[in-house]
Simulated scan of single mutants.
Amino acid sequence: MKKLTIALASAASLAIVACAEPAEEENTMADETSMEDDAMANEGPGTIVDVASGNGDFSTLVTAVTAAELGETLSGEGPFTVFAPTNAAFDALPDGTVDTLVNEDTETLSSILTYHVVEGNLMAADVMSAIEGAGEEGYTVNTVGGGTFTASVVDGNVVLTDATGGTATVTDTDIEASNGVIHVIDTVLMPQ
């Protein structure tokens, strides 16, 4: 997308140069395009909340984070590692669960959401190393919500086992944010 934007900006600049009368206008347009490109390159990813908000697969998660009033926390300095359930993961919960949590039981919702957050910046390679170092029992992950879940490798995939014995598979990793990293999971983890 960035290359396409640069290419379009370059083509537009060439068209303006070809039609422009004064040389000053050429330089001004080129300088403005260059400054815009530099600003875009220096922005980098936003916070975890910004990154999740920009991904349609996390719209339910973003709604839940907002309802539980955790947006400011997850936009904070961090770093945080978030094991982020997709919309499909939330859709797999029993009918009405998400609506009830979002509209009536934000305390439980907050507990569930903070169960998916870990302090620190755990990249996929870090998680794999920790699993390998932990042996057959798997790696115990401490969450900011005060609970734990276990990470292990099953059939070549990283699988998280929650406090209820439920499992979630990590489907995508290392989505970087300015204050941490997101790993995508296919099931909502339950703290109890």
Rank of each mutant, 00 (worst) to 15 (best):
L14G: 06
A15N: 15
A15F: 12
A15P: 09
A15M: 14
I16Y: 10
A20S: 15
P22R: 09
E24D: 13
E24W: 09
E25Y: 08
N27C: 10
N27R: 15
T28P: 04
T28I: 14
A30T: 13
D31K: 15
T33H: 09
S34E: 13
M35A: 14
E36H: 15
D38S: 15
D38W: 07
A39C: 00
A41K: 15
N42K: 14
E43Y: 01
G44Y: 10
P45F: 08
P45Y: 00
G46T: 10
I48D: 01
V51M: 08
V51P: 13
A52R: 05
G56I: 00
G56C: 00
D57K: 11
V62I: 04
V62M: 04
T63R: 04
T63F: 00
E69H: 11
G71E: 15
E72H: 09
T73E: 06
T73F: 03
L74N: 01
L74E: 02
L74K: 13
S75Q: 10
P79R: 02
A84L: 08
P85G: 10
N87G: 06
A88D: 14
A88Q: 10
A89P: 07
A92E: 08
L93I: 00
L93M: 05
P94D: 01
G96C: 09
T97R: 00
V102W: 04
V102T: 05
V102M: 01
E107A: 14
S111Y: 00
I112E: 11
T114H: 03
H116P: 08
V117Y: 01
